[in-house]
Computed example of a mutant assay.
Amino acid sequence: MKTAGSEPGAVSGMILTLLAIIWCVGVPVCLWQMIGASLGYPEGDREGAKAWETAAIVILAGAPVLATGICVFTGRVVRAWILGLIAVAIAGFVATGLYLDARQAELRRPPPPLPSGYCAEYSGGDSDCPGG
């Protein structure tokens, strides 16, 4: 007599179910914690909010990748394709977000300092600059 746990795919099925629960519950919980950390009084906790955001992104992108790998190794072809497409779409969104974040950081960067000995001439007065 076989029990439910003795089938070859039972363990991988339980792991896939656990990954689905972590994916569906973990991401909203992390985002909720991120919002709570960023709205703290008197100032928001930027490091805490960034840590919760990172955790949400890792769960959001990591769970489908792990589930795809499990499905590939256990022969669940249709689920592997579906989860693989979800993983690729999420990876695209994450890469786009990282690119936009890096682009915004580049735009907010202060201008480079002026070279030493730089002299600006102003109209309406004497020039203190050498050669002028």
Rank of each mutant, 00 (worst) to 15 (best):
D128I: 09
Y41K: 06
Y41H: 03
S116A: 13
M1S: 13
G124W: 07
C24P: 10
G5L: 02
E47S: 10
V25E: 01
P115C: 09
R109F: 10
C71R: 01
L66T: 05
P112Y: 09
K50Q: 13
P130T: 13
P113E: 10
V78K: 09
T68F: 00
A87V: 01
T3W: 08
L85T: 10
A4F: 12
A91H: 09
I70N: 01
G69F: 00
M34W: 04
V27I: 11
V88T: 02
D45P: 03
G48H: 03
V11D: 07
T96N: 08
R76T: 09
L83K: 06
I21W: 04
V58Q: 07
G40Q: 15
S116P: 06
V77Y: 08
L60W: 03
R79C: 08
P113G: 05
L85F: 11
D128N: 11
S12W: 06
V72A: 01
A63K: 00
S123A: 15
P28A: 09
V27R: 00
P112A: 13
K50A: 15
I57M: 03
V29L: 12
W52A: 07
I35Y: 15
M1H: 13
A20C: 10
P42L: 11
A63T: 02
Q104F: 08
G131S: 14
P64C: 02
I86F: 08
A89P: 11
S38V: 11
W52S: 06
I35T: 15
A51S: 03
D101T: 12
M14F: 11
I70M: 01
I86E: 05
P115T: 06
L98P: 01
A56Y: 10
L18H: 13
A55V: 10
G26P: 02
F73E: 05
E53S: 07
M14N: 11
R76L: 08
G117Q: 10
W32R: 06
G75A: 12
L100M: 15
A10P: 00
I15E: 00
T3N: 14
A20G: 09
G48R: 05
S123F: 14
Q33I: 15
T54S: 10
C129G: 12
S116R: 12
A10N: 04
P111K: 14
G124M: 06
E106W: 14
C24H: 10
L19Q: 04
S116V: 14
S6V: 01
L18M: 13
M14W: 11
L18Y: 12
Q33R: 15
I59R: 01
I21D: 07
V25M: 06
S127F: 04
G5K: 01
A87K: 00
Q33M: 15
Y41W: 05
L18R: 09
I22E: 06
G132A: 14
P28E: 03
V72E: 00
E7W: 04
G132R: 15
L98V: 04
L16T: 00
G13C: 08
